[in-house]
C-alpha cells in the first residue's frame, strides 16, 4: 500500500496545476454553448475597448456632418461605417469609446462593491450575533431602496460623475453581495474543516479569509458575472435618464436618449447603440448561465 513516491518541492507543481486548472475551466466552458456565446460577446467588447486608441477612428466628439447614413462618405474622404448622429459625430467611434468607458467603470464599481459586500457578508455570517444584526440592518436599509432610486438620490446629492456611479453601485450592490456571502458562510461554517481550524485555535480572520471565502467562490463567480451585467445596465440607465457620466464623452445610455426622439428619420443612430448595449449585457447573462450550469454539473 505504501508505494511512497519521491516528493519534490511543492511550489512548482502548485503553479502548474493552477495554470492547468485555468485551461481545464476554459475547456469546460466549451461544453456549454450558451456560456460560450456569452464569453465571445464579452471578449468582443473587451477587445474593442482595449483597441479603441489604436483603431483608425474619428474623434468621438468631433462634430462633422449630421444625420449621415451607414457607410456614407465623410467630408475628409473617409467612411462613416455606421453613419453619424444628429450632431454629426461618428457613431462607430462613439460606440467603441462608449464600450471602453462603460466597461472600465462597471468593472471598477463591481469590484469595489464586491470587496465591501464580501467583508460584510463574511463578518455577519461567521460572527453571527450582534455583528450580524448590525450588518444585516445596515444592508436592509439600503436594500429597501429600489436600485435606480438609490442611484438617483446619490447622483442628486453628489452630482453626476464616474465616481458617483461607483458609490451608487457600491451602496446598491454591496448589501446584496453581503446577503449571498452571508448565506454561503452560514452553510459553510458548520463544516468540520471549520471546526478543525477552530480547534487549532486559528484566529477568526484567518478562518474567514483562508478557510471560508475560497470555498464560496463558485456561486460568487456566477454572481459577479451577473452583477457586472447589472452594473452596465445601471450606468446606461443613469445615462439615459440624464444622470450618468457627464457629456460630451460618449455614453451608450445618453446616445439612446438623444437618438430616440429622432428615430423617425435616423433609425440607425437609435438602433445601433441599443444593439451594442443589449449584446454586452446578454453576454454577461449568458456567461453567468453557462457558468452556473457547469458548476452544477460537477
Amino acid at each position: 500500500m505504501t508505494d511512497a513516491v519521491k516528493f519534490d518541492t511543492a511550489l512548482p507543481a502548485k503553479r502548474e496545476s493552477r495554470l492547468k486548472r485555468f485551461f481545464q475551466a476554459l475547456a469546460l466552458m466549451r461544453e456549454s454553448p450558451v456560456g460560450m456565446i456569452g464569453l465571445l460577446l464579452i471578449l468582443f467588447w473587451v477587445m474593442m475597448a482595449i483597441l479603441a486608441p489604436f483603431l483608425p477612428l474619428y474623434d468621438p466628439n468631433a462634430i462633422m456632418a449630421p444625420f449621415q447614413k451607414i457607410g456614407a462618405t465623410a467630408p475628409d474622404g473617409g467612411i462613416f461605417w455606421l453613419g453619424t448622429d444628429h450632431k454629426g459625430r461618428d457613431i462607430l467611434s462613439r460606440i467603441i469609446w462608449g464600450a471602453q468607458k462603460v466597461l472600465i467603470w462597471a468593472t471598477f464599481a463591481t469590484f469595489v462593491a464586491y470587496v465591501v459586500g464580501m467583508l460584510m457578508g463574511v463578518l455577519a455570517g461567521y460572527k453571527g450575533g450582534w455583528a450580524d444584526e448590525i450588518v444585516s440592518f445596515i444592508a436592509n436599509i439600503f436594500l429597501s431602496f429600489p436600485f435606480i432610486i438609490l442611484c438617483i438620490i446619490i447622483v442628486a446629492t453628489l452630482g453626476a460623475s464616474g465616481w458617483t456611479v461607483v458609490v451608487a453601485v457600491t451602496f446598491a450592490s454591496a448589501p446584496q453581495i453581503m446577503r449571498i456571502v452571508r448565506g454561503l458562510v452560514l452553510d459553510l461554517k458548520t463544516r468540520d474543516y471549520i471546526f478543525a481550524a477552530q480547534t487549532r485555535g486559528e484566529s477568526p480572520w484567518y478562518i474567514m479569509l483562508v478557510e471560508l471565502l475560497p470555498n464560496a467562490r463558485g456561486p460568487l463567480i456566477v454572481d459577479a458575472c451577473l452583477r457586472l451585467g447589472y452594473t452596465v445596465v445601471a450606468i446606461a440607465t443613469l445615462g439615459f435618464l440624464g444622470l450618468g457620466l457627464p457629456p460630451p464623452d460618449p455614453d451608450w445610455g445618453l446616445m439612446l436618449k438623444e437618438a430616440v426622439p429622432l428615430g423617425a428619420f435616423a433609425g440607425h443612430s437609435m438602433y445601433l447603440p441599443a444593439a451594442a448595449l443589449a449584446s454586452l449585457i446578454l453576454g454577461f447573462n449568458l456567461l453567468a448561465d453557462g457558468l452556473r450550469e457547469i458548476s452544477l454539473r460537477d
Binding site: 511543492a10 502548485k14 463544516r191 468540520d192 474543516y193 471546526f195 478543525a196 481550524a197 480547534t199 487549532r200 485555535g201 478557510e211 475560497p214 470555498n215 467562490r217
Partner: peptide, 23 residues
Amino acid sequence: VALLQMVFQNPFDTLNPSHTVGS
C-alpha cells in the same frame, strides 16, 4: 491546543476543499 486534537465524522467535510492535503 496541540495536546488535544480531533478526528471528525464526515469525510466529505473534514478537509477544506480549497487547499491541498499537504498544505
